[in-house]
């Protein structure tokens, strides 16, 4: 990483944090957290989170377990409400579902065929033959075109997560929230899934927010890495590396080092 790009590294530990530099005029905003805090009882999970994300950006959120990164994602997806601060979402577009959530587990309905599971992602958007056609299209994109009428129980772990990805994407979401969806997969399947995710993201240009504990995964996929520590943003780092990225390159390794230093320093 050239020295100049170090300016992209900003520490948010000392408040007040500067707002992220202006999102350019042509770039729309996907969502913005302003001073967002979340408490469960006496425990403060998130505290004063400021995060402004332009549409189409791929953001990775990293942190040790229990740091509040999953809570951040749940707030974004509307599964929880912040106890303080505000969360602004960009304008809703026609024909798109706003936010889709991909869980750590595939969470497929075992009693519905693969294609029916994908159609769940079109609830309230499309139904009948239209839904089936769209579900089949997206199944093709995730590489499972001939498994449409099988039960989820016969699929492998990686295939189940592909179906879950298809379900999340079939409604053309503006924002895709991913909660460590690849964490339970074996290393090789994980890399395959990362490549699939990147390819589809490049094609569809949705805003992706990936929560992960895998630093290598974060720098391989994301435009921007946000490190959360004790409920605050500890590091907000751009990853100005051209795609396709080569896993294990010196550039990525250096970024990885910066992040690890911040996590354990």
């Amino acid at each position: 990483m050239p020295a100049a790009s170090l300016t992209a590294v900003r520490s948010f530990v000392e408040a007040p944090a500067p707002v992220r530099p202006a999102i350019s005029a042509e770039g729309r905003r996907a969502f913005a957290f302003k001073g967002v805090g979340k408490r469960f009882g006496d425990e403060t999970v998130l505290d004063g989170i400021d995060l402004d994300v332009p549409a189409g950006q791929f953001v990775a959120v990293i942190g040790k377990s229990g740091c509040g990164k999953s809570t951040l994602l749940r707030l974004l997806a509307g599964l929880d409400r912040p106890t303080s601060g505000s969360l602004t979402l960009g304008a809703e577009e026609q024909g798109h579902s706003r936010t889709r959530f991909m869980f750590q587990e595939p969470r497929l309905l075992p009693w519905a065929s693969v294609v029916k599971n994908v159609e769940v992602g079109l609830t309230g958007i499309a139904s009948g033959t239209d839904a089936r056609r769209r579900a089949l299209d997206i199944l093709g994109e995730v590489g499972l075109p001939d498994r449409a009428d099988e039960w989820p129980s016969v699929l492998s772990g990686g295939q189940k997560q592909r179906v879950a990805l298809a379900r999340a994407l079939v409604g053309h979401p503006q924002i895709l929230a991913l909660d460590e969806p690849l964490g339970a997969l074996d290393a090789l399947t994980r890399i395959e899934m990362q490549q699939l995710l990147e390819r589809i993201w490049l094609a569809q240009k949705f805003t992706a927010v990936l929560v992960t504990h895998d630093v290598a995964e974060a720098v391989a996929l994301a435009d921007r890495v946000v490190v959360i520590s004790e409920g605050k943003i500890a590091l907000d780092l751009d990853v100005p590396v051209a795609r396709p990225r080569r896993r294990g390159s010196a550039e990525l390794a250096r970024l990885e080092g910066t992040i690890l230093d911040r996590l354990f320093g």
């Binding site: 969470r107 309905l109 769940v120 609830t123 309230g124």
Partner: peptide, 27 residues
């Protein structure tokens, strides 16, 4: 409960949630 949460997140109303998630799960 994870499937029920998934159903909610994907916008199922109570009726859909019952017939597509809860009842088949209880069967």
């Amino acid at each position: 409960p994870q499937l029920v949460e998934m159903g909610r997140v994907y916008g199922m109303d109570r009726r859909a949630l019952f017939f597509r998630v809860i009842l088949p799960g209880a069967l």
